[in-house]
């Protein structure tokens, strides 16, 4: 297991290298000159040339790439063209809100999806099951931004229970932090709740008539415990993969949600930097998101082995 973990960690390096090449190319091949944007349309060609030299934009692209890669290995992602701060610092300042948002929506997803799935399977012979199946389908097909707007209008404007925008760090009080995040986190979770509850329900319905479930019932174990222990733990295994994909999907979702709810997170930083053609920051953020994605995948694989004793990687 340890060996496997180390091997997987090492395999991250080539993946990240490929990602960085792609990121670099995408950003540098899109038209638009950052020097123009910084100095304004009607600045003199000399001034622009000077700034390009200062930013290293006049060097051949290959050189720019190798500079960038070299610096990454020393932990230096360059400087923001816009604010002149180091990119790592700019990213770190935005990590808190994004992670808070993701954690909260993941927690919401699991807290709602798991009991729902168990309950639906418990009442599997009633009208509840087809009702649930359609509901989860609707949940999974709702566009995030539309649902966000709806909630903002409903619970932020019409009945102003929740704040519609802004972010308060957890350091300024758990409750205000929670209060500001709950609405965006719920929007972000909405799609995933349906998906995960559905996966769990399918897995549990399959496990519910398996022989080992019969053995548990024949022991005299309570049906509720049979479902929560024997059936659930088996259904969790296939669901884990989906949960991994979900967490990664949340990362993408934050870009939209942070913009709608004006949360100063990584997603908003990415959008702002694209508007500003702030190459170093764009590259840094995409690289950072890719790294998180890869790490989450690794964690899911390890979790998989932990949940299913039949899987041994060595």
């Amino acid at each position: 297991m340890l060996q496997y973990t180390v091997r997987r960690l090492v395999s991250i390096i080539p993946v990240m290298l490929i990602v960085s090449v792609i990121v670099f190319l995408i950003v540098h091949l899109t038209p638009g000159n950052p020097a123009y944007l910084i100095l304004g349309e009607d600045s003199s060609p000399e001034a622009i040339e000077q700034l390009e030299a200062q930013l290293g934009l006049d060097k051949p692209m290959v050189m720019q790439f190798f500079d960038w890669i070299k610096n990454i290995f020393t932990g230096d992602l360059g400087q923001s063209i816009y604010s002149s701060e180091p990119v790592t610092q700019v990213i770190m300042e935005r990590v808190g809100p994004t992670f808070s948002l993701m954690m909260m929506s993941m927690a919401l997803t699991l807290l709602i999806a798991i009991p729902t799935a168990i309950f639906v399977v418990w009442r599997r012979n009633t009208v509840l099951d087809p009702l649930f199946t359609s509901a989860s389908l609707v949940g999974a097909s709702i566009p995030e931004f539309w649902f966000a707007m709806l909630l903002v209008l409903g619970l932020g404007v019409a009945i102003p229970i929740f704040p519609v925008a802004g972010y308060v760090p957890i350091a300024e009080g758990f409750f205000t932090w929670f209060y500001h995040l709950i609405l965006p986190a719920f929007v972000l979770a909405a799609v995933e709740i349906g998906l995960i509850a559905r996966m769990l329900r399918d897995g549990m319905l399959e496990a519910v008539n398996q022989d080992y479930t019969k053995t548990a019932r024949a022991k005299g174990v309570k049906e509720s415990i049979v479902l929560m222990k024997h059936v659930f733990s088996n259904a969790l295994i296939p669901t884990t993969t989906v949960i991994g994909v979900t967490v990664a999907g949340l990362l993408g979702g934050t870009v939209i949600i942070e913009t709608i709810f004006t949360i100063p997170g990584i997603g908003q930083l990415l959008i702002d930097s694209i508007h500003r053609r702030d190459y170093p920051v764009i590259q840094g953020v995409v690289l950072f998101i890719a790294a998180i994605y890869v790490v989450i995948n690794l964690l899911v694989d390890l979790l998989y082995a932990f949940l299913d004793p039949r899987i041994r990687y060595d």
């Binding site: 022989d211 080992y212 024949a218 022991k219 733990s233």
Partner: peptide, 28 residues
């Protein structure tokens, strides 16, 4: 009732099934 039955299942009447490969819970 289900409750009274549970007191009998596994306690007074026990059962073994046909397929030992699938009758034990793989994750415990």
């Amino acid at each position: 009732s289900e409750r009274e039955l549970r007191k009998i299942r596994g306690n007074e009447i026990a059962m073994i099934f046909q397929d030992p490969m699938s009758s034990l819970n793989p994750v415990f």
